[in-house]
Nucleic acid binder design. Structure first.
Length: 481
RNA sequence: GGUCCCAUAGACUAAUGGUUAGGUCACCACCCUUUCAAGGUGGCUGUACGGGUUCAAAUCCCGUUGGGAUCACCA
């Protein structure tokens, strides 16, 4: 049977980086096996619906390069791919569960349930629906149940979990997992508004969409016994499960908004490349090689193995993310980077030719980790400095240097101003004047950029051009008088 | 608290039961050098603890400790 996997987010806002990792693993697994990867929107909770969330999710996924073979946009043979358009199906299978005595009606009110939980809490037992004492078809009897149904009383349908024995299932990442049945709750399957809960909708759709492998976050592990019971009750073959380790905050808790950015779009806006995000997140919980860190999407696909996924959670370390982005920044083709840089430069109010922009990116990408840092880092490539770092100036500048600098500028002006020439002229004059080249270079940096840090000075000047550089030196000298 | 999951350095990870426990980020030093980076070289730090099984354990088993997830008419 060919592989079919799915990424099934709930449209509650944005794509979480953990969600990206889950989607990515599904995608890698499907592509590796020549199978299909499906996107399904799980919007059964009307109260949590967020306008535009689905579109946002899809656009983040598309940006990252995770593509789906079947989705709400694309359609497919197993549609609809939006759960709110499939409600009839869930009701049908809820009825079937009822018929098979694997589920039952319950009529408890919210208050009654709260009271029950409080009682159990106080008695020191784990809150769990006790169908032998609550108001449901078993305690009420057939006649009363029929009467309540006939008058359309508020009711839900619950899963009838065995009172004894154990529930067992296999997980590709974790091996066999066994849970005492008495610890599994009689989960609500169909809410009083006739909408399904996640548990019902999820297994109905996974089955109907012929999903072969359920690859999802570890937070789902505790509810998997319920899902397994549902598959069994309906006589359906269980898919294979693979629960992925969680992405963690630095303090090891589940990655959350409280402790930093979690939305993929946040990282995108901050200037991380999609290649970085995919590469980085793929290596959180899995590693295809003992001695390599940089992988293209295709390489990830080629080597992906679910069996090699780690069990332990992984801390999302921004420092390493930054390092990786720098790697991509330095290895990507310059013209591609320039295209991406153009809007950033424009936003910063910089105007220059594309060739010049390209030179600037090529020059400064060695010094930053993200493309969008260039405008702030290298403002001087577009605007002449009017202020000069005091501390830096104090270190190299003395009035006695005015003349030598002037002389050096004069000689440079007479040259062709290529980087190598600038270097040679400066060195010659240094030897001649007995002043260290370093002093000249630092002063040129101060005069031309106003800053103490930046790229190679000779290349900076070459790109700025002779006229501009000479003007800046003159301005600096004048300002010191 | 119940249930379940997990445990290689500060972080991410590699290691058919047999390696001096390897790589990457971070950190430190040195080299390069014109500042800062990048790059190069070297270094620091690790199999949570205790028992077993075995000729041999990071690896298998048990326990302890620690961490995490989850316990809704949310997904």
């Amino acid at each position: 049977m060919s592989v079919r996997v799915r990424f099934a987010p709930s449209p509650t806002g944005y794509l979480h980086v953990g969600g990206l990792r889950t989607a990515l693993y599904n995608y890698l697994f499907a592509r590796h096996h020549g199978g299909k990867c499906i996107l399904r929107i799980e919007d059964t909770d009307r109260t949590r619906f967020v306008e535009g969330a689905t579109e946002n999710l899809i656009s983040s996924l598309r940006w990252a390069g995770v593509e789906f073979d079947e989705s709400p946009e694309k359609g497919g043979d197993y549609g609809s791919y939006i759960q709110s358009e499939r409600f009839e199906l869930y009701r049908k299978y809820a009825q079937e569960l009822l018929d098979r005595d694997a589920a039952y009606y319950a009529f408890d009110t919210a208050e009654e349930l709260d009271a029950m939980r409080e009682r159990m809490q106080n008695a020191g037992i784990a809150p769990r629906y006790d169908r032998t004492v609550m108001r449901n078809q078993y305690t009420l009897g057939e006649v009363e149940t029929k009467r309540l149904l006939a008058e359309d009383a508020q009711r839900v349908i619950r899963l009838k979990v065995p009172l004894a024995g154990e529930v067992r299932f296999d997980d590709i990442v974790r091996g066999t997992i066994t849970v005492p049945a008495r610890d599994v709750d009689d989960q609500i399957l169909l809410k009083s508004d006739n909408f399904p809960t996640y548990h019902l909708a999820n297994i109905v759709d996974d089955h109907l969409m012929a999903i072969t492998h359920v690859i999802r976050g570890e937070e789902w592990l505790p509810s998997t016994p319920k899902h397994v019971l549902l598959y069994d009750a309906l006589g359906w073959e269980r898919p294979k499960f693979a629960h992925l380790p969680l992405l963690l905050n630095p303090d090891k808790s589940k990655l959350s908004k409280r402790q930093g950015d979690v939305a993929v779009e946040d990282y995108r806006e901050k200037g991380y490349f999609k290649e970085t995000m995919v590469n980085f997140v793929a290596l959180l919980g899995w590693n295809p090689s003992a001695d390599r860190e940089i992988f293209s999407m295709q390489e990830l696909i080629d080597s992906f193995k679910l069996e090699k996924v780690n069990k332990a959670g992984a801390v999302f370390d921004i420092q390493k993310l930054d390092w990786m982005n720098g790697e991509y920044l330095r290895s990507k083709p310059l013209d591609e980077l320039t295209e991406q840089f153009l809007p950033m430069a424009q936003h910063a109010g910089f105007t220059a030719s594309k060739e010049y922009m390209c030179d600037v990116v090529g020059l400064l990408r060695e010094r930053v980790t993200k493309l969008n840092e260039i405008p702030a880092f290298g403002t001087y490539m577009f605007t002449a400095p009017t202020e000069f770092e005091e501390e830096y100036k104090a270190k190299f500048w003395t009035p006695a240097m005015a003349e030598p600098i002037q002389e050096l500028a004069k000689r440079l002006e007479a040259s062709d101003f290529a980087a190598d020439t600038i270097n040679a002229v400066a060195k010659d004059y240094a030897k001649e004047s007995g002043i260290k080249v370093g002093v000249f270079m630092n002063l040129l940096r101060l005069a031309v950029t106003g800053k103490s840090v930046g790229a190679s000075m000779i290349h900076t000047m070459e790109i700025l051009g002779k006229q501009e550089s000479i003007n800046r030196i003159a301005y600096f000298l004048k300002a010191q008088e």
